[in-house]
Amino acid sequence: MTQLTTAVVLLVTASLASFRRAGLGFTNKGTALHIDSLTDEQRAAIDAEPKLSVKEVSADAIPEGVDRTPFDTFLAAQSQTEEKEKTPPVTKTKSANTTAKA
């Protein structure tokens, strides 16, 4: 199993065509969010909002038609961060003067 299929996704569906809460936009078609992309305050606000339905699913269970943009954006940012952490820092070294005098 890959990290993508085991990722916990919040599937948030608004009871209105569009609705905003916790600085995020949601639709009645659903919005997929990576669970780690939210602060505790955002999660609490979303969970407490009666106009939003929240369901936890795995990434491979995101239904067709759901807006995956926030989920995919979070994964891309995580991937970039991991790549930066894997890349060793560039160090400058003094180069020796190899030009011979005649």
Rank of each mutant, 00 (worst) to 15 (best):
T2C: 14
T2Y: 07
L4C: 01
L4D: 07
T5L: 12
A7M: 12
V8I: 15
V9N: 06
V12I: 15
V12F: 04
A14I: 06
S15F: 00
L16I: 01
L16D: 07
L16Q: 12
L16H: 06
A17E: 13
F19E: 01
F19R: 09
R20Q: 13
R21E: 08
R21P: 01
A22G: 06
A22E: 01
G23Q: 05
F26M: 11
F26T: 09
T27P: 03
N28F: 05
N28I: 03
K29D: 05
G30W: 07
G30V: 05
T31G: 09
A32W: 09
D36T: 03
T39P: 05
E41Y: 06
Q42W: 12
A44Y: 06
A45R: 15
I46M: 08
P50S: 09
P50E: 06
P50W: 02
K51F: 08
L52N: 08
V54I: 13
V54T: 12
K55C: 07
K55I: 14
E56N: 08
S58P: 00
S58Q: 06
D60C: 05
I62L: 09
E64F: 08
E64G: 00
E64N: 10
G65H: 02
G65L: 00
D67R: 08
D67N: 15
R68W: 02
R68D: 05
R68F: 03
T69K: 08
T69R: 05
T69A: 06
D72F: 06
D72M: 10
D72N: 10
T73A: 09
F74Y: 14
L75D: 00
L75Y: 07
L75S: 02
A76H: 09
A76T: 14
A76E: 13
A76M: 08
A77C: 02
E82C: 03
K84T: 13
K86M: 14
T87G: 02
P88Y: 05
T91K: 14
T91D: 04
K92L: 13
T93F: 10
S95I: 13
T98P: 00
T98H: 06
A100Q: 14
A100R: 13
K101M: 01
